[in-house]
Design a protein around this nucleic acid. Structure first.
Lengths: 343, 343
DNA sequence: CTGTTAGCGCGTTCAG
DNA sequence: CTGAACGCGCTAACAG
């Protein structure tokens, strides 16, 4: 490997001059700078980030930790993060925890050794489990989803609570009363907020939520959970279901089809996220769109501010109700008041 | 940051002894080793990988470069890579190119500066574009998909050609003659093989492929491409379509539904990949399952071998035809020969 | 504008 | 079994 010493030698200057020239003409002769650059290129010089890191005490790296990257809703968030990181000159260290304690510890160890300057935690239970840990780490951290808002951690997330209410109100407006909730077991924090929104929206309209209509899937496979829940919901008299995410909803759609339950006629279904696939399901899914790319970008920007010790706040992004074909009027649809026309 | 010097001082030994003790008792007194470890822990010592990298001339990092991570078929591959990497003690540097030249160059520069020990390139056009570059880089590289088999690059991939043939033969056996192909424009290499399999399987049965039935989507959004193609295929008299991947197929399914084309009655559809969603589409998708996790793991193992300068070969994984509900007998289904029974 | 010097934190000879 | 000394490649004062 050719180093700045090699360049210095063949350019008849000192290493520090080379260093300066390479960084951008910080007080170095235009001529010599040019010469140095030429020689560097000629020699095939490639700076060593390890050396620079050591000297600078900066790693230029941020770690992105997630429990799984197979989730179709998460890829886009990661793209948002990566895009901003690249723009700011940071590299991404990717780690997948699978929610396994052992792996989680390895990851944290690795991040510390590499002196990552910041951490983004996505939909991981680590956030909750090691709440204190991340505080002790002294590495700026921002959590996306899956974390209650707290003083010591920055959270960037979708507005689970309000979005859930939007979903329920849509269903209520359609005339549904027996509205179910289909949840997951591996995203406790965000789910809590969505369930709260579900309950509150219902009670606000004078409806007492029926615990029988709240089903929490026990598998990590959200699609399968949805599939299995279809018949149960209908048996229990639900005419509409609000799902934790689009994957659950699409599974549910499939389960309905399997059991001959028509959507939206017999059952209205609302998803969450608006993944790419949502628009192409059968029927196209009514869902709550979340700005996933923007959330990823915002997370990184927030992290950067925090790294610069600037004052920052947690962020909550509003969701948007996208009405497609999986929801239809329910049994209690009030007759629209029509002004009678003259014959 | 506490360093081995700090430990050495408070343990009354030399830094080098600490270094040895920390690495694993390489000829260091059991007692002193224990003492050193205790002190290290007490002081909250965290080794600096930058320093180690510099001294060792090894980065313990491998770069994973892909054009997009939103593709649902790619996440699983990345998980396979990450899992093996973690198991072998390597960290992952993640970079997304978006197939943009500028970004691609940044990524390569960054990888070189970080002295990554290996590179995995997934479904990226960089493989083809910079074929020579990666050769000159002197960094072991393995390409997943999107690269013709060549001497200078290691490729790990699905058996596109045979899988395509499997798909077409399935359709042929079902009695379809007018079989279409729905392709994409951003995966030239793997597509080339699939198209070849499509052509060859057809001609092997004496059918002359109709160019009118080969449609290549022009957008990066495979779902949208599929959606738009539905009507065209039917208008041109296709009774079955083999799609580049499940995303295209699911889009196609949706397009069919929109235009009142029934699947599989009027049109049989075959996908490729068997993403999680495939099983839950309407109807459930007949597709060619590819062992994505295994491909990811194999790619990393191959890379590691190559890094150790061991002899290695490119790998091709066979696909498996998964028959579900999106394919049904076509117009030319030969009557099954039934042995007449006695009344 | 440029050279000298001194680390950054760790691994690794080479001597004891 | 342990210590001293040097190098990895680069940055950053501090002098000129």
């Amino acid at each position: 490997m050719v180093s700045i010493y090699d360049i210095a030698r063949t350019a008849n200057v000192s290493p520090s001059t080379v260093s300066r020239a390479l960084q951008g003409n910080t007080r170095v002769g235009t001529a010599t700078t040019a010469r140095i650059l030429a020689i560097a290129h000629e020699l095939g010089y490639v700076p060593s980030s390890a050396a620079r890191n050591l000297s600078t005490q900066r790693s230029n790296t941020i770690a992105v930790i997630l429990s799984s990257i197979a989730d179709p809703a998460i890829g886009t968030v990661v793209e948002g993060i990566e895009r901003q990181a690249a723009r700011q000159g940071y590299d991404i260290l990717l780690a997948i925890s699978h929610d396994q304690t052992g792996r989680e510890q390895e990851i944290v160890a690795s991040a510390r050794q590499r002196r990552v300057e910041g951490i983004v935690l996505i939909a991981s239970q680590m956030a909750a489990r090691y709440n204190q840990l991340f505080d002790d780490l002294h590495i700026p951290t921002v959590v996306i989803s899956e974390q209650e808002l707290q003083d010591n951690v920055l959270v960037v997330r979708a507005d689970d609570y309000s979005s859930a209410q939007l979903a329920i109100n849509h269903l209520l407006d359609l005339g549904h009363i027996r509205i179910g909730y289909l949840g997951v077991h591996d995203r406790p924090a965000s789910q809590k907020s969505r369930v709260a929104g579900y309950y509150d929206a219902l009670t606000a309209r004078g409806i007492i939520p029926d615990p029988e209509l709240v089903l929490i899937g026990n598998r990590a496979d959200h699609l399968a959970n949805g599939y299995a829940a279809a018949q149960v919901f209908v048996q229990r008299g639900a005419t509409a279901v609000f799902c934790y995410n689009d994957s659950s909803a699409i599974g549910l759609l499939s389960g309905c089809r399997h059991h001959g339950i028509t959507v939206p006629e017999q059952l209205s279904v609302v998803g969450f996220d608006d993944i790419d696939m949502a628009q192409y399901s059968t029927p196209p899914l009514t869902t709550l769109r979340q700005p996933r790319m923007a959330i990823g970008e915002a997370a990184l920007k927030t992290l950067l501010l925090r790294m610069q010790a600037q004052s920052t706040e947690s962020l909550t992004f509003p969701g948007e109700l996208i009405i497609r074909k999986s929801t239809a009027p329910g049994p209690h649809k009030p007759e629209p008041k029509v002004i009678k026309r003259l014959a």
